[in-house]
Each structure stands twice: as C-alpha cells, then as structure tokens.
C-alpha cells in the first residue's frame, strides 16, 4: 500500500470524454470493484497497476496520474477483462484513449516510427517496403518456386498484383516480403489448389497498422482507406486478411 495521500479532484474530464465516445458510455460507471478483471490479466502488477486500479483512478479523477502512466502500453487491449467482467466494462477502450493523452513526439519511438513510415509509403508498409520492392520480391519468389518445383509451372501458380476483378483482395504483413519471403509461397500454393481468384494490391497491401496502436485516428483512417480504395478500384468483392 502506498502511504502517499491522494488528493481527489472530483470529476475526470478524461473519463467523461471516453464515455461520450462509447456506446452506453462503455459502462465505465458500473464497476462493482470485484477484481475479476485484474485477477485474469497478464499485465496485472506491472508498475504496480492493474485494470481495476486503472478504472478506479479514472473514477477518482486522477487524470494526471493516468497521463503519466506507462501501463497503457503494457496492456495489449486483449479484452479478456471485458470477457470476465459481470458489468461488461470497456476498460480496454479506456486504455486506448489514455494512449492519446501524450503528445505525438512522446509516443513510444518504435510505434511512432512504424506509423510514420507506413504513412509515408502508399503500400502502407511500416517497414518501408515500396511498390517496387514488393513486386520484385513477389516475382522473384514465384520464379524460384517454379524452378525448384516445375509442377507449379504446370499448375499455373500465380501471385498477381493489381489484378482487376479478382474475388479476393489479400493483404500481407511486411515481415514476409522484407524478412521471410519464403513464408509467402505456402499461401499461394494453397490458394492455387483451391482455385481461388485473388490479388495483392500494389498500394495498401501491408496488413500492419501501427497508427491504430498509437490511437492516431487520422493516421489509422488514412492507412485503412488506402487499402479499401485499392480494393474497390480493382473491383474485388472480398477484402481478405491473411490472418
């Protein structure tokens, strides 16, 4: 127990703001303080914090302490606490919104860098993979597979980019083209065996979205729109996440 006396400030502008954003105010005022959330949370105890304490701090108007806390970056917003909560309180959304309380340049560097990198490339790649890099890697790998296993030439294995009218628009995490391109082949082969009509997009193919993790709504929207627009432009009917 801390022996520091907490000075209460009454209403929390932070909690009020979050409640306005959420359906039913995220039930943020309904806490029974039972602790089911904290008992099943892997981030409980880190920096002496847990989901219940975090919600209580908001209820007590401790906005400054919330703003300074590192804990919102230790919570993965996995929603196991909501799953366990008898009142279905949306603590993860409280955490998500707490992330935006700090100025952009004070965000964790890795996440900020990944978000900014993705925004600067029309591919959305947080690792900076360009259109040219991507098509080079895809074409190179396709050739290698056909060389090693000629059966794929016969079976007409494809990895199309910007194929108009394909049914599925498939995205891909940047880690594959940038670090482990060999990991793309198995999926192409599976799609070939099923006879799926699919395509990557030259723009917006990257699946990761670090702006979202930073609660940067505009950046998140920009990246998502790029992918959706490319999918629409090609006339694909299904946007398919590789996960």
């Amino acid at each position: 127990m801390s022996d520091t006396r907490i000075k209460l400030k009454g209403k929390s502008p932070f909690k009020e703001m979050v409640m306005k954003l959420l359906p039913d105010g995220g039930n943020l005022n309904d806490c029974l303080t039972c602790g089911l959330c904290a008992s099943g949370c892997p981030a409980t105890g880190m920096d002496d914090m847990d989901p219940r304490k975090f919600l209580r701090m908001a209820a007590l108007g401790m906005d400054e302490e919330i703003r300074k806390s590192r804990w919102p970056w230790f919570c993965t917003m996995c929603t196991r606490c909501v799953h366990a909560c008898p009142m279905k309180i949306n603590i993860p959304q409280l955490v998500f919104n707490a992330r935006r309380l700090r100025p952009r340049d004070e965000m964790p560097k890795g996440i900020l860098g990944s978000c900014d990198m993705a925004l600067s490339k029309e591919t959305n790649s947080a690792m900076g993979c360009t259109k040219e890099d991507f098509s080079f890697v895809v074409e190179d790998l396709l050739e290698e597979i056909k060389e090693e296993y000629p059966i794929w030439e016969e079976r007409n294995l494809q990895a199309p980019i910007d194929k108009e009218g394909a049914e599925f628009f498939i995205n891909q995490n940047s880690r594959e083209p940038m670090i482990e391109p060999e990991e793309m082949g198995p999926l192409w082969k599976i799609l070939n065996l099923v006879g799926v009509d699919w395509t990557y997009g030259s723009a917006g193919w990257a699946a990761e979205n670090y702006c979202m993790f930073m609660a940067d709504d505009n950046g998140w929207k920009t990246l998502t729109e790029r992918s959706a627009q490319k999918c629409d432009e090609l006339g694909c009917t299904t946007f398919l996440n590789t996960e």
Binding site: P42, F74, T76, C78, R80, H83, P108, G113, F213, M214
Partner: peptide, 17 residues
C-alpha cells in the same frame, strides 16, 4: 474466447518495453 493474450498484441512488440 477465454484464452490469455500472448503479449504480442496492441503494439507491445514495437513499444520498446
């Protein structure tokens, strides 16, 4: 639905922690 998160989500991998 009751599974534990592995700790790789929410940007944790790139957060520096």
């Amino acid at each position: 639905s009751n599974n534990f998160c592995c700790g790789g989500g929410g940007g944790f991998l790139q957060s520096g922690y």
